[in-house]
């Protein structure tokens, strides 16, 4: 049953990616990308990664779709019909993919419980057997995320913060007209808009 679900979802993923490659309309591309994330989240649930599925659904198909739509709202919707058959790109991708497939040939099979990743006594095994006693959390993902690898998560928060200030510096937080682009006032302050008519210009 699990296998069947996986196969169906994987087929979906492949179909979506083909759609993204073929379609030229960017809006469809964005929607398909959101769908891709959503289906991937489904696959993650089948693979027991509930936290990841939750995040992927919220971020991949939620937030990033909104960001794409926002960006599309003031650029073009259609990709120009060029740049379709780059032999060099195709060759590069084929070689890379071939190398990856070669690398997977003697990997532990899917679902194997005896692979190095599953049996390392101080990582996977430690987390599953000792984390409840050491941190008192039933959700191992949370205890690894926030405590054992809390430093990674600190880095992750800093990445989010970096992205926040990067977008702040590139776009600013508020819409402003060119004439009130005075260098003195900070990019984030509320503008004194005479009325809210201008809001329909978005």
């Amino acid at each position: 049953m699990e296998l069947l679900i996986t196969i169906v979802l994987l087929t979906f993923l492949v179909a979506i990616v083909i759609g993204i490659i073929v379609l030229r309309d960017l809006l469809s591309g964005v929607i398909l990308l959101g769908l891709y994330s959503l289906v991937a989240a489904g696959v993650f649930i089948v693979m027991d990664a509930v936290d990841v599925a939750f995040t992927e659904a919220a971020v991949g198909s939620g937030i990033s779709t909104i960001l794409f739509l926002g960006a599309l709202s003031f650029t073009r919707h259609e990709q120009k019909p060029r740049g379709h058959d780059s032999i060099v790109a195709l060759a590069f991708v084929c070689i890379t993919g071939g190398l990856l497939i070669y690398g997977t040939l003697d990997m532990p099979h899917y679902g194997s419980a005896v692979s190095p990743a599953q049996t390392h006594p101080e990582l996977a095994v430690h987390f599953l057997t000792k984390s409840a006693g050491e941190t008192g959390m039933p959700n191992v993902v949370t205890s690894v995320l926030a405590s054992y690898r809390g430093y990674d998560t600190l880095g992750e928060v800093v990445v989010v913060f970096t992205a926040g200030i990067a977008v702040l510096s590139l776009l600013g937080l508020i819409r402003r007209r060119p004439e009130d682009e005075a260098p003195e006032d900070a990019p984030g302050d509320l503008p004194k808009l005479p009325d809210d008519k201008s809001e329909h210009n978005v």
Partner: peptide, 8 residues
């Protein structure tokens, strides 16, 4: 704030 930036 990302939403503000991209929507406004």
């Amino acid at each position: 704030s990302l939403f503000y930036s991209f929507a406004s």
